[in-house]
Simulated scan of single mutants.
Amino acid sequence: MAILNTRIREMRQQRRMTLAQVAQQLGVREATVQRYESGGIKNIKDSTVEALAALFGCTPEYLYGRESALPDVPGVLPLPACRTVPLLGSIACGKPLLAVENLEGEVEMPENIHADFALRCRGDSMIGARIMDGDIVYIRSQPDVDDGDIAAVLIEDEATLKRVYKIPGRVQLRPENPAYPVMEYQGQQLESIRILGKAVGFLSRVV
């Protein structure tokens, strides 16, 4: 199959158009569009390629394979490919909240972010890290983090989002808001805390 046929199919699928919709726009039969994509028609007319390019919002050169990437459209930013992860309730950005895992649904995130689940933030203790009340934070499950990482931490049956600092014999959970105190655990208190995972991204409701 030639690159022209492949790109016609790929562009139609990216634009979420059916064979019938493309056929209607071009004034041809659905089977003809299918043959454009399969290579059943060996020499597609230049005028047809130009019409397809206009329909898909690309250039004829891209369909022919003379351009390796889609051209930029002024004023329009391309969005990254996304996947979904479960949204498991809320986490405190303030005083710890009761940790009740409650599947609220799913949220999208870019494929290049490696996270296992998401939580909705409550409170303002992490505003210095630009994490606001109501934001969605993406968490990668892991039992430990590096000093200074922002992590979801379980404290007995409550959960909070803080920066984690490990000092010999103790652990500090530091907020990003001076209105909140540092939470420190040592000795037997360390048995009551557990790191759920590292925050690897967030989706802000502030625009």
Rank of each mutant, 00 (worst) to 15 (best):
94 G>T: 07
59 T>G: 04
95 K>L: 08
202 F>V: 00
55 L>G: 04
130 R>I: 02
178 P>K: 13
68 S>T: 11
150 I>A: 10
175 P>G: 09
135 D>G: 04
145 V>L: 13
50 E>A: 07
118 A>I: 06
18 T>V: 03
79 L>A: 15
9 R>Y: 11
47 S>Q: 08
140 R>D: 13
110 P>F: 13
64 Y>S: 00
196 L>G: 12
29 R>N: 12
137 V>K: 04
24 Q>S: 13
55 L>P: 00
109 M>C: 15
136 I>L: 14
175 P>M: 05
56 F>G: 01
104 E>C: 06
122 R>L: 12
86 P>C: 11
75 G>A: 09
188 Q>T: 10
100 V>M: 08
80 P>F: 07
114 H>N: 14
35 R>I: 00
29 R>V: 04
129 A>F: 03
45 K>Y: 03
107 V>L: 11
8 I>G: 01
57 G>A: 08
34 Q>H: 12
65 G>H: 02
120 R>N: 06
71 P>D: 03
83 R>Y: 13
117 F>L: 14
27 G>Y: 04
134 G>V: 11
148 G>W: 11
89 G>F: 09
145 V>M: 04
155 I>H: 07
170 R>P: 01
25 Q>S: 13
84 T>S: 13
173 L>I: 13
128 G>A: 09
59 T>S: 15
64 Y>L: 05
4 L>Q: 01
57 G>S: 08
159 A>V: 15
184 E>W: 07
131 I>M: 14
109 M>E: 13
27 G>L: 01
164 V>W: 02
37 E>F: 01
126 M>W: 03
200 V>G: 05
45 K>W: 01
171 V>Y: 10
55 L>N: 02
123 G>D: 06
140 R>Y: 11
173 L>D: 10
53 A>G: 08
192 S>P: 02
13 Q>N: 13
204 S>P: 10
200 V>D: 03
81 A>K: 15
35 R>H: 04
70 L>A: 05
130 R>H: 14
205 R>P: 00
63 L>V: 04
189 Q>P: 08
150 I>R: 05
17 M>H: 04
191 E>Y: 10
97 L>R: 07
194 R>D: 05
138 Y>N: 07
91 I>T: 02
158 E>T: 12
161 L>R: 01
80 P>K: 09
37 E>W: 00
142 Q>A: 12
122 R>T: 06
178 P>R: 14
78 P>E: 14
77 L>K: 13
199 A>G: 00
204 S>R: 09
9 R>I: 02
107 V>D: 13
145 V>P: 03
